[in-house]
């Protein structure tokens, strides 16, 4: 096992076909070390989310190489991508909670993807995570009865409950107030330090830049800046 969690080389990505074909990413190269907290920034349409979804196995890699936890995703089949997704945690800009499941049940889905397991342990783990994000009193609430920020915190708990190797987060703090947003990002950073969990996050939120180990800026599908704020403790830096 290397210290590199994600390795992207010569990545190009296109949307559409024929004359409508539009290139979204141009020769993107980036390596992300294990346990680090990386922020992707850039204006709308710069390719941040596309890059995130390609690294997160949510799209097929058309051209170039994406190695995730030492597995090549280019030309990989759907089964491989599904296996990889189970090692990842996703937090989406829209929380995408299931509206007929309670907060606890939504979080439990993050565990049930791995099989039957012990239902009591699933409940215990879900309750623990919801407590960590400050929703210990809202375990049985349906999403319709939660605020936007609370829903986002449930989504964070769902992403973390299975102890993923990598967390991919798209604007995870957009719906959170300053305190909650900072707390969530600190949680990601702490997971990196204590468990070696890697986090790649798309954000426009300038308040959290100081907490990142690295800030990568994209414009028009190209990396235009790659700034390393600091190195995570106990983690060997990956190649530039």
């Amino acid at each position: 096992m290397t210290d590199t969690a994600i390795s992207v080389r010569g990545l190009n990505h296109f949307f559409g076909a024929g004359e409508a074909r539009k290139q979204a990413l141009f020769d993107v190269n980036i390596e992300v070390g294990r346990g680090s907290l990386t922020i992707l920034m850039g204006p709308s349409g710069s390719g941040k989310t596309t890059l995130l979804t390609l690294m997160g196995c949510l799209r097929e890699v058309h051209a170039g190489s994406v190695r995730l936890l030492d597995r090549e995703l280019f030309a990989s089949d759907e089964g491989t991508r599904i296996d990889m997704r189970r090692r990842l945690g996703f937090i989406f800009q829209a929380h995408n909670l299931h509206d007929s499941l309670t907060a606890r049940q939504n979080v439990m889905m993050g565990l049930q993807v791995h099989g039957r397991g012990d239902p009591a342990r699933h409940v215990q783990a879900a309750d623990h995570l919801l407590g960590l994000v400050g929703l210990g009193e809202r375990l049985t609430y349906l999403p319709g009865n939660l605020s936007g920020g609370q829903k986002q915190r449930v989504a964070i708990a769902r992403a973390l409950v299975s102890n993923p190797d990598i967390i991919f987060a798209d604007e995870p703090t957009a719906a959170l107030d300053k305190v909650s947003g900072m707390a969530a990002v600190r949680l990601f950073r702490d997971l990196g330090r204590t468990r070696g969990t890697t986090t790649v996050m798309v954000t426009h939120d300038p308040r959290i830049l100081d907490l990142a180990d690295r800030v990568v800026t994209l414009e028009d599908g190209r990396i235009v800046e790659d700034r390393r704020a600091s190195l995570p403790r106990n983690i060997t830096p990956g190649p530039a």
Binding site: R85, L88, F90, F92, V113
Partner: peptide, 15 residues
């Protein structure tokens, strides 16, 4: 109506 939720489950790794 539940496509986004199902998609989220798909992203989590449900087959």
């Amino acid at each position: 109506d539940h496509l986004r939720e199902y998609a989220t489950f798909k992203a989590l790794g449900f087959r």
